[in-house]
Simulated assay, not measured.
Amino acid sequence: MTVQLTDSNFKEEISKGLVFVDFWAEWCGPCRMLSPVLDELSEELEGKVTIAKLNIEENRNTASEFGIMSIPTMILFQDGKPLEKVMGFQPKENLKQYLESKLV
């Protein structure tokens, strides 16, 4: 299950382990296409990677802090530190390979 992030719980939720955060908005078509892909990956990678989502319309402070200019943008965090940014819609297999490559 994906974790719903807000400005108030963001720092705590990304502080432990590998967390892949999707910055999205309701009105974004590619974001809506990506949502079920991330839900599936969340189940398949449970216990290895946490998949989380942050609605940028409702949580502008965090989106601004990470310089989110276009969506969907995903950032991979390790123990609270941003590692890499992935931009735009990505097919499930690409994202799965990417995340599995970070589990070393």
Rank of each mutant, 00 (worst) to 15 (best):
W24F: 13
K11M: 05
P91C: 10
V49N: 01
E44A: 09
N9T: 02
E100F: 05
N59G: 00
F23S: 00
F10M: 01
G17C: 03
S70V: 13
M33A: 15
E12V: 06
V37G: 05
F23G: 00
V49D: 00
A63G: 05
R60V: 14
S70P: 02
K11I: 03
V37Q: 02
D7W: 07
E93A: 15
F66N: 07
V49E: 01
D39L: 11
T2A: 12
I14Y: 04
G47H: 10
D79A: 12
E26Y: 08
Q4K: 12
E13Y: 06
G88L: 08
Q78D: 13
D79N: 15
A63H: 08
L103D: 02
I75G: 00
A63Y: 05
R32F: 05
C28W: 03
W27C: 10
V3C: 06
I14F: 06
E13N: 10
Q90G: 06
E57F: 10
L99I: 04
G80N: 05
E13M: 12
E46G: 12
I68F: 08
A25E: 04
T73V: 11
L99W: 09
D39Q: 14
E84P: 03
S70D: 03
L54H: 08
P36M: 05
R32Q: 15
G17H: 06
E100S: 02
F77A: 00
N59E: 03
D22L: 00
W27N: 09
S64C: 08
F66M: 05
R32T: 06
I56W: 07
P36W: 07
S64L: 11
E43M: 12
E93F: 11
E26Q: 14
N9S: 02
A63P: 01
F89P: 04
G80L: 01
E84C: 05
E43I: 13
C31M: 03
L34W: 06
G17R: 11
D22I: 01
I71K: 09
E65K: 14
C28P: 01
Y98Q: 03
E46H: 13
G88Q: 11
L76A: 03
T2E: 09
L103K: 13
L83Q: 14
I68K: 10
G67F: 07
N94Q: 14
M87L: 14
S15I: 00
K11F: 06
E26T: 15
Q90C: 07
F20N: 00
E57C: 10
C31Q: 02
L41R: 05
G29T: 14
E93T: 15
W24K: 02
Q90R: 15
A52V: 02
G88W: 08
N61S: 14
E57H: 11
E40N: 13
C31R: 06
V19H: 00
E84A: 11
T50L: 04
R32P: 02
S35I: 07
V21E: 01
E44P: 01
P30R: 11
S15V: 01
I56G: 01
S64M: 12
E13R: 13
L45F: 08
E84S: 10
G29R: 12
